[in-house]
Design a protein around this nucleic acid. Structure first.
Lengths: 201, 201
DNA sequence: CATTAGTTTCAGAAATTACTGAAATTACAG
DNA sequence: CTGTAATTTCAGTAATTTCTGAAACTAATG
């Protein structure tokens, strides 16, 4: 590995983490190196940096591209391909979430929906089905929130996260205010959803 | 596999998903079976259900326990150990998140903090360090939100998620109201954070 | 259109991870 | 204690995943 100690530490750790999240160690390291590099890098520079085979880098880059985690660049008077990571780190998180949703969450939801259509052949199956219904609803709840929030610009998203559960306080406050003209309390929407669940189960 | 077609479908899919998230196929299947079972199950029942070796189940159960994903039960007049998954499915998500945070996020934060203390030996390192700083801040932002929200009871959490980005609307509304007495707009906290970032970079 | 730089593919090798059966351990009952 | 049921450990094997080098492909260059 021809890397400064700092980047090396980072790359090794990131590779380790990658391997716990379904990405191979080397691909994780490759991403770390690209992420930390001030300039776009070509495949040979990555080979140089990590001491792995050229073909391995080629495959890794291909994988990173399918995850939308790197951008392809071309430098003038150089026909090699250069790669970078997005400048806005939140974009990275968004792309990652988007891709995992597409690959893992959506198929799971679809399978759970299918199962909900079948009719159970035993008491145990009936229970299993109800349980899967719970899981289906939970995933929908989470992805619904995600879809909603995903659209926000980085600035707004950060504001929302910083707020965290303090929203509750503001909601109460809003309730106190809006209750005056006799409108519905804001907990309503959530409770409505919960009730819907029971019909399905 | 001695399972109803419904649970079998579920278990196979869940095993597949598990393997993409750093859990072995079999452990994923084991969890699916436990999750879908109306009654607590003992190790031999899982062996029976999935057709894997007894020792494999033993190890799998141990792993699930280290993740806090199963509860141990004892039935009267039976000294075998029985296992269940929590009734509240949100508890499962919480435990999972908690454990992953402990194992992956916290060490990463700690490493990033260490790197921030070092002094860079080159321009490239300087950039790398700034980049890691961005990552550090992002993770802290996310885990801060998580820590905050994690404490909420299931009901409240669902309400919050259902609200999603609509909070923004309410914030604006709140701003309009609280601006009257001349107090600060609520975007403040987030923007303050962002500025802090730049000092570090 | 031949040469060459750059990239990808792919079959087999290497490394890692998962699984098994046998032996060891634990923990309870008589 | 002794015997037995339940569980765990672990060394070896099987299966899977990752990685490599050689060959094939692609496309720009003179």
């Amino acid at each position: 590995m021809h890397l400064s100690p700092m980047v090396q530490t980072f790359a090794l750790h990131f590779g380790e983490m990658g391997s716990r999240w379904g990405i191979s160690r080397t691909v994780g390291q490759m991403y770390a190196v690209l992420f930390a590099s001030p300039e776009p890098m070509n495949a040979d520079q990555i080979v140089e940096a990590l001491g792995v085979s050229r073909s391995n880098v080629s495959m890794g880059l291909k994988e990173l591209q399918t995850w939308n985690l790197v951008h392809l660049k071309h430098l003038p008077d150089d026909r090699r391909e250069y790669f970078t990571t997005p400048d806005d780190i939140w974009e990275i998180v968004r792309n990652l979430a988007e891709e995992r949703k597409k690959r893992e969450v959506d198929p799971t939801l679809s399978l759970l929906r299918d199962v909900m259509m079948q009719n159970p052949t035993s008491e145990a199956d009936k229970y299993a089905q109800a349980r899967m219904g719970e899981m289906h609803d939970l995933i929908e709840q989470l992805t619904g929130w995600y879809d909603d929030v995903q659209k926000l610009e980085t600035e707004r998203l950060i504001a929302l996260l910083t707020l965290g559960s303090k929203v509750q306080k503001i909601l109460e406050m809003k309730d106190r205010l809006t209750l005056l003209p006799g409108s519905k309390p804001s907990g309503e929407t959530a409770r409505g959803r919960k009730e819907a669940r029971k019909d399905t189960a």
